[in-house]
């Protein structure tokens, strides 16, 4: 087990190294790096001074090592637009996106998996047909459209929930969170629902297919022959048998939502990193873009690592060097 963890950690480190090289190549070797580092309207003197300070007159490999060193120290430079360190800027926005993405994926999974299991267990029932209709809808209706409909219905017409913005946050660990207060939750609910619809559809499909397959196996037949009730079989046997693909998709969806929640964040004026990155692309705030790329890679690698490690928890056959006899 320890060997497995170490192996996965090394793999993750390698992927991060490759990513940093790609970003470095994109910014330093192809573009003109000085544009990334200082504002385009700086004077010639400041430019020359910066070139020396950042070592841009040095050979590429030395520059790469210096770049790596700055990354490791969390030094992504200054934002041109906000005039503050990029890392602080992104970290101030990240919790908003983090809780939005997590809420969306959790809603999609906690609802989608039981519904999908039911649809796989009783494929011909009326409820299962309704569940599958929801899933088709979730796949085919565009996110922005659903977002607008949600705002129209719940914010404009019914006036139950706020139409956008993040509302008040509660400070924990020096970071503001919405989900800790009821009012904060009311702001979080609509954008999270909006983002969760696709994930719900996905989880329903996945659990339904897994359940249908599992129900036909000898494992389930043997459990039924032992007198287990169908509910116990679904909860104890089937859920465990289908958990690996569910965890995989959970991780993938969490990663991609963190990185690409842009549409929903824009519609609901949610102050997350998605909105930040779109803003910085339009204003050519390059240090922010570089930091964002590195950070997204880091998030994906971390999530994949956690998913990989949870495989070993979920499937004992993947644990190596365990108590095998």
């Amino acid at each position: 087990m320890l060997g497995y963890v170490i192996q996965r950690l090394l793999q993750a480190a390698l992927v991060m190294l490759a990513m940093s090289a790609l970003v470095f190549a994109g910014v330093y070797a192809i573009g003109n790096p000085i544009d990334v580092l200082i504002s385009p309207d700086a004077t010639q003197d400041i430019r020359a001074e910066a070139i020396r300070r950042y070592g841009l007159d040095l050979p590429l490999w030395q520059q790469y090592l210096a770049f790596l060193g700055r990354l490791l120290r969390g030094d992504f430079g200054q934002s041109f637009v906000f005039g503050m360190p990029v890392l602080d800027l992104i970290l101030s926005r990240l919790p908003a996106t983090l809780e939005l993405a997590l809420a969306a994926v959790l809603i999609g999974t906690l609802l989608g998996v039981p519904l999908g299991i039911h649809a796989g267990y009783r494929p011909d029932s009326a409820l299962s047909r309704a569940i599958m209709a929801v899933s088709v809808l979730g796949f085919s209706v565009p996110t922005f459209w659903v977002g607008l409909i949600l705002i129209l219905t719940f914010a404009v017409n019914l006036d139950w929930l706020p139409a956008g913005d993040r509302g008040p946050t509660l400070e924990v660990f020096g970071v503001g969170w919405s989900f800790l207060t009821l009012e904060g939750l009311s702001f979080l609910l609509l954008p999270a629902l909006n983002l969760s619809l696709f994930k719900l559809a996905m989880m329903i499909r996945l659990s339904r297919a897994g359940t249908r397959e599992a129900m036909l196996t000898d494992t389930v037949k043997f459990a039924r022959a032992a007198g287990l009730s169908d509910l116990t079989i679904l909860r104890r046997h089937v859920l465990r048998l289908i958990s690996i693909p569910i965890v995989t998709v959970f991780g993938l969806e969490l990663g991609s939502t963190l990185a690409f929640a842009v549409v929903t964040e824009t519609i609901f004026s949610w102050p997350g990193v998605g909105k930040l990155i779109i803003d910085s692309i339009t204003s050519l705030d390059r240090p922010v873009m570089v930091a964002y790329l590195v950070l997204v890679a880091f998030l994906f690698v971390t999530i994949n690592l956690v998913v990989d490690l949870s495989y070993a928890l979920l499937d004992p056959r993947l644990r190596r060097g365990g108590a095998a006899a």
């Binding site: 196996t217 000898d218 494992t219 037949k221 043997f222 459990a223 039924r224 022959a225 032992a226 007198g227 287990l228 116990t232 104890r236 046997h237 465990r240 048998l241 958990s243 979920l314 499937d315 004992p316 056959r317």
Partner: peptide, 30 residues
């Protein structure tokens, strides 16, 4: 009645036991 008064054993033990549950758990469930 199943499992308590009439039990059944199948051909392939590789396929009948759940690979991701300990045999202690599976027997406890029964």
């Amino acid at each position: 009645l199943r499992g308590r008064r009439i039990a059944m054993v199948f051909q392939d033990p590789q396929a009948t036991l759940n690979p991701v549950l300990t045999i202690g758990t599976q027997m406890a469930l029964a």
